[in-house]
Amino acid sequence: MLETLNDGAWTLRLRSEGTSQRICVRTGRELIQIRHRQPNCDRFVVQDEADVVTVQYTCRGNGYGRTTIRREGPDVVQVRSQGIYGGAPFSIEGEARHSGSC
């Protein structure tokens, strides 16, 4: 499902924090690890359907997370992620929209 998203800059608005951030999307996988930006985390795809994907990941020494991304169109997705980051729990929900090129 992630491969069907448009490449380029996406703006992710986090409802739980009232913040937004820009993410450069090339493969769609950039939306999986919102809290854990480090490379080399182990990932396991729990669900991969036409409009929704759920991925569980573990970042050795820095926690883990489970992210569900639901596609509403090639330019809009809903993101929900929760887990442990830096020894503390996190839970975020937000909407990402394609916003141009990187």
Score class of each variant (00 low, 15 high):
G18M: 05
D75M: 09
F44T: 14
T58M: 14
T4M: 13
R35E: 13
F90C: 06
N6Y: 13
R22A: 03
G18D: 04
S101A: 15
Q78M: 09
T68D: 09
R26G: 09
T58S: 15
G73T: 09
E72I: 13
V45N: 10
G87V: 03
L5E: 09
I32E: 04
S16G: 09
D51N: 15
T11L: 15
V53P: 03
C41F: 08
R80Y: 02
T58V: 14
R97I: 00
R60T: 13
L14I: 02
A96P: 06
D48H: 15
G18A: 04
R97A: 08
V77Y: 00
T27C: 05
E30Q: 14
E93L: 00
E95D: 03
Q33C: 05
R80E: 11
Q38M: 10
S81M: 03
N62C: 05
T19H: 03
A9Y: 00
C41D: 01
V45T: 15
L14F: 00
V53N: 03
V53H: 05
P74Y: 13
C24R: 11
E95M: 07
I34R: 03
I32K: 06
Q47A: 12
V77T: 04
W10T: 02
P39Y: 07
C41T: 01
E17V: 04
G61L: 13
Q78N: 04
R22D: 12
V25S: 04
F44C: 01
R26T: 15
R80F: 01
R43N: 15
A9P: 00
N40H: 11
G100W: 02
C102L: 02
C24F: 09
T27S: 14
E93W: 01
R35I: 11
S16A: 14
V55A: 07
